[in-house]
Design a protein around this nucleic acid. Structure first.
Lengths: 149, 149
DNA sequence: ATCCTTATTGATAATGATTATCATTATCAA
DNA sequence: TTGATAATGATAATCATTATCAATAAGGAT
């Protein structure tokens, strides 16, 4: 419990440092957006972030949410999550590119390694003649909490 | 060359039969939309289908394109293609669920088998405690034509 | 601490994609 | 051929995102 709290706090600090070292100013709108997303264990879209962040900073504008998301994505601190119903939500990423594991019930998002893909990529490459440069892999299911209900 | 033509023609017939057997009427708007998408080797969005189909049937409405896509997706004859830039395009699917291989240059779309994923899914399942029910896998790169240019 | 440049903001309007409404039209079974 | 009704196209409405712009505030220089 404490472990993960520390981890979230580190993430928050890291994001703020990244913005700063890129020359971006540290403003209250950006801070509240970061506070929402850096501590979330599920993907959130702009409207959800807006609603949540306005509880702490009620004059926040929706447009600033979009602008902050833009910057965090540019710095590869967050990534877009694709879902059958849509693709407008974002999750904090530990490193640039990670594979996602999504709970269909509660939305909990986890990451996993997918190094085992290399042989498959090699096979598909030679079969298809494609030069494969990038890939997406996402798993969907029920997290340990939701599957036991 | 002839081979693939026959394959496309079969697909067109198959889609029309599926619509019929589901009780949907066969109309000209539906036919022209099917004609565009069943013969395409790359994913198309509603506007692209609209533009293309109107060359054959100029009174086609954009809304009918959306409605036809809805039905084809419901019958699992087409599937939505997710792309970093957006997720509004559709490609004909041979069977319900397939893995996609997309050319970043020309948009050519191919399918491949991903049975090798099973051990990875097992690993991630036991590591995470998730009950994994579904997955997405897409590869991006350059097709054999585009990579040689 | 104060000033000043300018990045950033929020309000508003504009855009693009998709969905709802509805009177008219066309399909297809009887 | 007819008739019930599924399907259509035009229009308006909705939803998410982006552009515009005057006002504001961050943070380095003084």
């Amino acid at each position: 419990m404490n472990e993960s709290k520390i981890c979230y706090e580190d993430r928050r600090e890291n994001w703020i440092d990244s913005l700063r070292s890129r020359g971006y100013r540290l403003t209250e709108p950006r801070q509240v957006v970061i506070d929402v997303l850096a501590y979330s264990s599920r993907a959130l879209n702009a409207a959800e972030i807006y609603d949540s962040a306005r509880k702490k900073y009620s004059s926040l504008g929706l447009v600033s949410v979009y602008r902050t998301l833009e910057k965090l994505e540019e710095l590869e601190l967050i990534q877009k999550v694709h879902h059958p119903d849509g693709c407008q939500s974002y999750i904090a990423g530990f490193t640039g590119h990670q594979h996602l594991l999504l709970c269909n019930e509660c939305g909990l998002t986890a990451f996993f390694e997918g190094d085992d893909l290399v042989p498959l990529i090699d096979n598909v490459s030679s079969d298809s003649g494609f030069d494969i440069q990038d890939h997406w892999l996402q798993f969907f299911g029920l997290c340990s909490n939701c599957k036991s209900v």
